[in-house]
Amino acid sequence: MNRKNKWIIYGIGLSLLLGGCMNMDNANGNGVDEKKNTQDEVKDQYARVQDYKGEGYFLNNGDENDKIAESKRSEVEKAVKDFFLEKYKTEVKVHNLVGNVDGVTVFVESTGPVHFYSYAIVPINKGTEEIMTKEVRTQEGEVERGIREGLYRLIFEEEFKNLDTYLEKVVSEEDVVGRTVESLQNVGGSGSMTPYYSMSSLKSDEAIQPVYDLYMEDHETAIDTLKKAYEGDSFNPDSLRINIMLFMEEKNVDPSETVMKRVVKDIEEMSALPKGTYRVAVNDNGVHKESFEGFKDNSIEQEIIRNE
């Protein structure tokens, strides 16, 4: 499922969930006060994007394992660091531990020049409270995706700097903001991310594959050598998606069509930006605490393809 469809489906699901709560209140004959309480509860699920650092992030049935993992944090951290070093020859720093039904999800950030966020899952034996250090795993393809996206940023450093500078300018001139760095560190875990955008890449991306293979063979490979390995003629813009996510600065303000039009026009017209498929989304001020989600029913979005 591509990322765009994922966001849309999530928004529809949340809408149906909230709508179901409202309808249930009415069906039970509850009055205005009960309806207001339900609305207040819904609002309480969201935090101001400027304040959100991952507090309240939740994985189903993870409370018990969360406590076990925190009590053995040093053991969990060592297991994850060893796993990334052994399997991916990559040093990481651990930011956050969140219990899940089978163990603990550990959010990490790479420390080398190929920068990305990711996570690992460490199983826990609930009966013995043993940290299963030899069974650390990740979701298939997630770390590899993060490395590919980090390599894109590395070999197209100037183009991504231009994009970063442009979005910082938009935020300084318009009534919009981005996510906090702390939220990316603590609950992001999704490849190459900045406060203003994330990336998603396909495993079948032929253009970056030779760069990836060369880098995994030798992490000390010079950047110039990596750049030469890139097969630009094979690039498909759908293989690299750049998901720009901006949020309104003030609460209770609908996403700005003016900001959307400006960003879309600029992305279409500016030179020296990364190639790829851009998804520009402008959201209200709220972030769903339990899921890190910012895209909602009232969010607006548009897609742009840059292949030159």
Rank of each mutant, 00 (worst) to 15 (best):
M248A: 04
S172M: 03
Y119L: 09
D238H: 10
R241T: 13
I305P: 02
S271T: 07
N243E: 06
Y197H: 09
S74N: 14
G127R: 09
P210I: 08
V92G: 00
E303S: 13
N30R: 15
Y215W: 15
K53V: 01
Y212K: 08
R306C: 01
G189E: 01
S74L: 09
G112A: 12
G62E: 06
D33H: 11
N5R: 14
K261T: 08
L97V: 01
K134H: 07
S190A: 12
S190Y: 15
L14D: 07
T105L: 05
D25V: 15
L273G: 07
E64A: 07
T221F: 10
N96M: 06
N100S: 03
G99A: 05
E182V: 02
I12V: 14
S291F: 11
R73V: 00
M245F: 10
N5E: 12
V170I: 10
E77Y: 04
N307T: 11
S110G: 06
E173Y: 02
K261D: 14
R279Q: 08
P113D: 13
S201A: 14
N283R: 08
G31T: 11
G276Q: 13
Q209P: 01
K228M: 06
L167T: 00
V263Y: 05
Y278E: 06
V122I: 07
G294T: 02
